[in-house]
Design a protein around this nucleic acid. Sequence first.
DNA 1: TGTGGTTGAAACGGTACCGTTCCAACCATA
DNA 2: TATGGTTGGAACGGTACCGTTTCAACCACA
Lengths: 189, 189
Amino acid sequence: MQQVELTKALYRAFFHEWAEQGFAALSLERVAARAGAGKAAIYRRWSGKLQFADEAINTLALKMAAFEDKGSLDADVRAFHLRLRTVLRHPLVRRILPDIHAEAARLSEMKAISERVAQARREEASKIIERSIARGELPQTLDRSVALDFLPSSIYWRMVVIKNTLSADELELHAKGTTAALRALSSSH
Amino acid sequence: MQQVELTKALYRAFFHEWAEQGFAALSLERVAARAGAGKAAIYRRWSGKLQFADEAINTLALKMAAFEDKGSLDADVRAFHLRLRTVLRHPLVRRILPDIHAEAARLSEMKAISERVAQARREEASKIIERSIARGELPQTLDRSVALDFLPSSIYWRMVVIKNTLSADELELHAKGTTAALRALSSSH
DNA sequence: TGTGGTTGAAACGGTACCGTTCCAACCATA
DNA sequence: TATGGTTGGAACGGTACCGTTTCAACCACA
């Protein structure tokens, strides 16, 4: 009977090592040591690093809390950005998420994980777009795919790529710019 | 007298290994083997991985060709996006660039490299913004920092984070949305 | 030609880490 | 209590890789 507490400790250690070393250099021996375990405990649960990562990611609440309807596109975008900023500030997330993206360019299994992470977020983002269309704020002909690019991208760029903080004023500007971008889009097909 | 051709071969090998393995897992022994060299050739030139990376990045033409003035914000943004798409399609760039960003979250020396890479691009991007202000298309009070977030971010998100291609039509929409975002910004200070 | 210095592939000695094995401890069952 | 099975830390045998050393080849200069 595997110990549930040990499995949890292993997941915690795995995330910490992932954040510190990156996936490529992550050592299962160090994960085991960090969790106060031996490697057999890891190999009895997972066949290797990729499966460990895959299932570690699964333990996270990938399903974001549903966004409540704020009543307008502006307000919805602001709320989405605020939450995204909060997520991207987390010390583990802000190191692991870009590492997933980098690794996804090298490893197809990691690409699959990256897509799964993105999918959950995209579903919630889509609701914002669809609600806005239903309210008549955005056109029915909106290119959803490009709209979904605009929704998170400027915040991601600022916090993950440039690695600068985002003040409340800047967050406001980002929401304003993003909303304007969404309004400017319409399908060209 | 160190052989110039060997130094070049080492840089080429380094970039290839970086793209394939990521910086964290990059092995100087493999770089040497790939270049048909021994490790002493590496250690006589560079003290280790970080210095090698630092100087390898320096060998690239970081100074982008200056953007010629296309006459309007729309056209400038379109041209900027087109070039960014081209750059991000390069098989080495699309693997190394996100890896730099991921590593920058772990290693301060890599953060310095990442900032240097970004700086060259930001200078050219700034010129687009300043020209547009000079033409009267954008307000003098524009928040430059947020504007510079919007300029590359949707393309980066699409190509590097989501890892999907960008058609010509979509590129057009991205430029349209980005331009609208820039127009919507004005400083709140 | 002899001398001194530089260069770089191959070898070296040592460590980290891999996946596997060992075996004591524990649990369930007859 | 005895038996069989599971679990997991420690040890194992092997490989990759590190930074350093060796030494043949080469160059420049007197």
